[in-house]
Write a protein that binds this DNA or RNA. Structure first.
Length: 860
RNA sequence: GGGCGGUUAGCUCAGUUGGUAGAGCACCGGCUUUACACGCCGGCUGUCAUAGGUUCGAGUCCUGUACCGCCCACCA
């Protein structure tokens, strides 16, 4: 079905077209007309569904957001013009630690999950000095209230930028709907055996006092020191030296370990040594993970200094001597009561008393003193710098603390997930390796419980036994139709509220889910998985997940995992990975720097289309420099488009068949631009397309319009004018639509001058529509050659310090090219007019390409 | 230690299957030209990181190296 222009539509071109105010004008009209509303009557194959990244609401949007969200919008607009019903929702990630911290400070409250909900609670006007304790539901109400303000500001920015989002589909990760999806999905995993809880050593942040997941770790280079520590044989007949960076964990030591083939230690396997200061007997064990090259080749295993300790502890079935508390301090400990055996309990207690309640760092300094005094420190500590694991949002090194946590199984699905990674179409393709790498490196299941408040609670209670302890083996689960629930205030079926935390009663699970445990369900949340199965069937699996590369291991991985476990499918067919915005000095643009230039100020200064033009220069996956110069170029392009359109539309009659070689040549090229642009946009290569279209457009303005101008004014008769007018109108129609995904405001403005409806609902250009009106014999070659000659003439004029408009008596042109001999009288007339020359003389075998001869009047 | 990407003009980047190195910006010069001074025309700019190899021919393909960036790792 060929697209046809409405040529009877009245044409109204403003006297002085301007870019100012286009954003306000068109974002209001788009809202009014519902231009971007999802048409949910369309079947799945006609839908293009986007799993939009929900930005974190606890801060402000920065230039990086503007950059990457523009990429998605370009693709969305393209697909819409291709005839797809575009499902393009917006989400807000208001769930999680950053919001929690902000709400505490803003309202002066603290969450106490043990309190009951107070429906009449109002926060004080000004936060007091002492935080007020509130229940978890009250706390969440405050979070919702505060984030609603931010969300308004975010939406205003997105509208101003021109994102073609359907604002009727908006979700927030803390909303009831998201909580319900999170809880239902969790319960189903639990019932299938894919989720479990267990008391185990867990990565732990001592400041937030919560468990964290492997995906949330980062390494930081920290100063440290190797300490060489002497462990004596029980009979004092010999000793073994180990090296450690964490001597404060000697009281937590449960064994020494060396490589099974290490000749130095082979004789010692199966024997014991005693720990310095504490006199605890620990065995010497072999394990192939011990590296003979490191330190003294024999290591101390503590519960727990790092993840290797956990591996050894599990593999060698060692006991637990945990000393680090959830707050990071060494716990008070009465020697002997825990069954610890010491050859000298009195001395052990005396040493340990000096460490108890100190933070790990302080305890380290203290124990070094003690070891020096006792002579168990060999030599001086040797300072080093080494990588230490941190929670990515944390300030102190992670500890490993034994605690009860919820997990989703990942290890058993590794092969299947690798298969999914390969099944997904990545843009750019090399990003696939990031996910494969991550899956290969997984070393444990995904810990999803957090000891925080503002998040989705686990919908689980436990029976409280007669001795007051909880019976974790028999969790009490609500039926799905009760969800979402908050076990800290809701009561399980068959119990009364006053049985909470009483023997014979019940207790609620105190934890909330990791923010990724909810975010990993964005396709389900946005698509209406539970409450709107009809919608869900039309949008899932979705077409594309746009996101940045730094959260492949978290958001992308977890979404693939959840979809795989729940539906046995990928959540989307494509992953479009955006890069970062870099400072001019090539560093990742930090939030603080990004806030110096607020996005809204950028949009005001350069226009949304100008900023989008810059954003479109960043190809998928490529980190891109922040470049106001490019925004200015984009603005100039927009202005140029306004003026070119004004010129074309200022005189559209007469119209008729396109018979002139110049017109056909230009359109011949346009046909190729359309065809190639379509292919590249299908592959998410929007950068290439904008460059190609832009290059066409500048040539169109500089050469074609200049060459066809006089003829178009009717200087050479009606047929010539008709051909030019028709070609220009056709070119404008195509350019208007080719630019539309990139420059939505200026293209909509121009379209409104001469066509009904919105350019954004007009069909994407089709090269066949151009082919149809071209003469059978059409080629680009002659057009290119004439343009080149015009350029040469301009160059000669510039060299002669003449105005490009200066009239010429003669242009001499070397006539050696086969092509030139075929020039028609019509194209020569166009060239003469554009060059302002009275004569064009072909000189066979001349020594020059082009020579010019000014008129006499000029010099007179 | 493993993996991925990059290195082309002063800056930001294109460069399809190998075939005479490109664009924009910046800079310099010219031009008030009936779409556009928020403009137009023109000019300058290169050891394509580096060493080798394949080839008639390499920015492009192969191997090694250096540097930059990112991701990952069991970092005692």
């Amino acid at each position: 079905m060929a697209f046809s222009l409405d040529l009877n539509h009245p044409i109204r071109v403003p006297e002085k077209p301007a870019l100012e105010g286009l954003e306000a004008k068109w974002m209001a009209r788009w809202e009014e007309s519902g231009a971007y509303r999802f048409d949910r009557s369309r079947p799945r194959e006609d839908v293009y569904a986007i799993d939009t990244p929900p930005p974190t609401v606890s801060g402000s949007l920065h230039v990086g957001h503007v950059f990457s969200y523009t990429h998605t919008d370009i693709v969305a607009r393209f697909q819409r013009m291709r005839g797809k019903a575009v499902f393009y929702p917006m989400g807000w990630d208001d769930n999680g630690l950053p919001t929690e911290r902000r709400v505490q400070n803003y309202f002066g409250v603290r969450c106490d999950p043990s309190l009951p909900y107070d429906p009449n609670f109002q926060p004080p006007d000004k936060p007091g000095k002492q935080p007020i304790s509130v229940s978890r539901p009250n706390f969440i109400e405050l979070c919702t209230r505060l984030t609603a303000e931010d969300e308004k500001a975010f939406e205003a920015l997105w509208r101003h930028l021109g994102l073609s989002v359907d604002w009727g589909m908006t979700y927030a990760t803390i909303h009831r709907r998201s909580q319900r999806v999170s809880q239902v999905a969790f319960l189903r995993l639990l019932l299938k055996g894919h989720a479990y809880h267990v008391e185990a050593p867990t990565l732990w942040d001592v400041d937030f006092r919560t468990a964290v997941a492997q995906a949330e770790l980062e390494d930081r280079e920290q100063p440290g020191a190797y300490h060489r520590i002497r462990f004596a044989r029980p009979d004092r007949a010999g000793f073994v030296d180990i090296e450690t960076t964490r001597p404060e964990l000697i009281p937590a030591c449960v064994a020494l370990v060396a490589h099974p083939d290490d000749e130095r230690y082979k004789p010692l396997f199966g024997t014991d040594v005693v720990t310095p200061l504490f006199g605890v007997r620990v065995p010497i064990k072999p394990h192939e993970l011990a590296d003979p090259e490191k330190g003294s080749g024999i290591a101390m295993i503590c519960t727990f200094g790092d993840v290797t300790d956990v591996i050894w502890w599990r593999a060698l079935s060692l006991p637990v001597r945990a000393i680090i508390q959830p707050n990071g301090a060494l716990r008070p400990l009465a020697w002997g009561s825990e069954g610890w055996e010491s050859v000298d309990a009195g001395r052990a207690q005396q040493a340990y008393d000096q460490l108890a309640n100190l933070s790990a760092a302080k305890a380290r300094a203290k124990i070094v003193e003690l070891l020096k005094e006792s002579g168990d420190l060999v030599g001086e500590p040797r300072p080093i710098t080494h990588a230490v694991k941190f929670f990515e949002k944390g300030d102190r090194p992670l500890e490993i603390v034994s605690s009860r946590q919820w997990f989703i199984k990942t290890m058993v699905f590794r092969d299947a997930l690798l298969e999914r990674a390969r099944e997904l179409k990545w843009h750019p393709s090399y990003m696939q390796a990031r996910l494969e790498n991550w899956i290969d490196g997984l070393n444990g299941d995904w810990c999803i419980s957090r000891q925080r408040f503002f998040g989705v609670p686990f919908p689980v209670w436990y029976p409280v036994l007669e001795d007051g302890t909880r019976d974790y083996a028999r969790p009490i689960l609500p039926p799905e139709d009760r969800l979402p629930i908050d076990p800290s205030t809701d009561v399980p079926d068959g119990y009364r509220a006053d049985q909470r935390d009483r023997p014979g009663g019940f207790g609620g699970d105190p934890d909330v889910m990791d923010t990724w445990a909810t975010s990993s369900l964005t396709p389900q949340i946005a698509g209406g998985w539970l409450e709107d199965p009809d919608l869900f069937a039309r949008v899932f699996p979705m077409d594309v997940r746009p996101q940045a590369h730094d959260i492949i291991r978290t958001w992308l991985f977890s979404t693939v995992l959840r979809s795989h476990l729940e539906f046995g499918t990928l959540p989307w067919a494509h992953a479009a990975i955006s890069g970062w915005v870099l400072d001019p000095d090539r560093k990742k643009m930090s939030k603080s720097k990004g806030n110096v230039v607020t996005p809204m100020a950028l949009l005001d200064e350069h226009g949304s289309d100008g900023v989008r033009y810059w954003a479109a220069s960043g190809r998928p996956g490529a980190d891109t420099a922040f470049d106001p110069g490019q925004m200015k170029v984009g603005r100039r392009l927009s202005m140029k488009f306004l003026n070119a359109a004004k010129f074309i539309l200022s005189k559209c009659e007469p119209r008729g068949a396109i018979r002139y070689a110049l017109d056909a040549g230009m359109l011949h090229n346009l046909k190729a631009v359309v065809r190639e642009s379509t292919v590249h946009l299908e592959e998410y290569d929007y950068t290439w397309v904008l460059q190609r279209v832009e290059m066409f457009f500048w040539d169109f303005c500089d050469n074609y319009l200049e060459l066809a101008k006089a003829r178009r004014y009717g200087d050479f008769g009606a047929a010539g004018a008709a051909s030019a007018n028709s070609a220009m109108i056709l070119a404008l129609s195509n350019l208007n639509r080719l630019f539309a995904p990139f420059l939505p405001f200026v293209t909509e403005e121009v379209w409104s001058w001469w066509q009904p409806a919105s350019v954004h609902s007009a069909p994407w250009p089709n090269s066949a529509d151009i082919e149809e009106v071209l003469p059978i014999q059409s080629s680009y070659d002659q057009y290119v050659r004439v343009s080149e000659v015009l350029g040469e003439i301009r160059k000669r004029k510039a060299e002669a310090r003449l105005s490009p408009a200066a009239p010429l008596a003669r242009v001499h042109l070397r006539n050696s090219e086969e092509l030139d001999r075929k020039w028609s009288p019509e194209i020569i007339a166009d060239l003469k007019a554009a060059a302002r020359t009275e004569q064009l003389v072909f000189v066979p075998d001349a020594s020059f390409d082009v020579a010019i001869e000014p008129t006499q009047e000029r010099s007179a």
